[in-house]
Computed example of a mutant assay.
Amino acid sequence: MRLDVQPWGATMAELVDAARAAEDAGAGVVWAPELHRSAPVTAAALASGTSKVGVGTGVALAFARSAMLTALTAADLGELSGGRFRLGLGTGVARLNQDWHGVAFERPVARMRDTVAIVRAVLAGGDPITHDGVRSINVRGWRRPCPPVRIPIYLAAVGPAMTRLAAEVADGWLGHELLTRPVVKRRPGFDVVASACCSIDPDAATARRRAANVVGFYASVRSYAAMFQAAGFGAVTSAANAALRAGQAADSLGEFVPDEMVDVYTIAGTPGQCAARIATYEEAADAIKLSPPSYGLAADEVRLAQKRLLELVGSHR
């Protein structure tokens, strides 16, 4: 199984250095998320700063950009990376789309299906380029002065409808950071990538506490409340939401998260414990994307956590 890395850096230069260290450790792909930075710009920096490792957006918001602009960006990143780029797309949640980016979120599965179709049509070239749906395109008299290109497309999916769509139209599936166990079957030509916050320390309790804020952040998001409730952690979501409404920072809610909840939703513990947990994904996934804990932590603590994560990746070879 391939070990991928979502590198962290307080600056873009540090982020690129971390990607280069992941490449040296033998990581298969370095993934650029989209929250505090632009995923495509970060991916461009990672591609320029490395030479062998795969580079992907993990994930870019599919609806905050036009599908045509997403396609052109993917084509440019494919060229810039020398063919190492893969386009990871996600819907985000309704509030993020509507309140942060001012874009529609209705019928997200159909909207994502149209997005993938349009991206592929633009990358393939030709004139006209047309598609009718929840998202549509009608381009005539335009030709990209470059050869057609095929970029692998990955879809982030948690719910059953989006998961079925990923299996139907994409080249790969990307799991959620909350260690979503793959619910798509492995098959030739389809890349199943689980994801996890991975917190490693010689002291397992310290590792868990570093990861707790990641779980606490999601516990405060209403979109995940039903999932946590079904797993028996409804009281945690209530406490995290109350603290958030009272003014506590969203990335500092780990105090409400018990160790057993950290163990369910992250990979946290000693190096041996984390390696054993990762090994349980061998049969279910082609790769697992690992990210260091960073929510609510001082920069030096994140750097230490990332160093230990990369040491684990290096030992996997």
Rank of each mutant, 00 (worst) to 15 (best):
L3D: 00
Q6L: 15
V16A: 02
V16D: 07
R20K: 03
E23F: 00
D24Q: 10
A27E: 01
L35T: 05
H36Q: 10
H36F: 15
A44I: 04
A45H: 04
G54D: 04
G56M: 09
T57L: 15
A60R: 13
A62T: 02
A67R: 10
T70Y: 02
G88E: 09
A94F: 05
N97Y: 02
A104W: 01
P108C: 11
A121H: 08
G125S: 07
T130Y: 03
T130C: 09
N138W: 12
R140V: 12
W142G: 02
W142F: 13
V149G: 09
I153D: 03
V158F: 05
G159R: 13
A166K: 05
V169C: 06
D171C: 06
L179P: 00
T180D: 07
V183L: 13
A207D: 04
R209E: 09
N213A: 10
V214A: 11
V215H: 07
F228V: 10
A235N: 02
T237D: 15
T237G: 11
A239L: 03
L244F: 13
A246C: 11
V257N: 11
V257A: 12
P258D: 12
T266G: 05
A268W: 03
C274D: 06
A276Y: 10
A279G: 07
A285F: 03
A285E: 06
A287T: 06
S291N: 11
S294P: 00
Q306L: 01
L310G: 12
E311W: 02
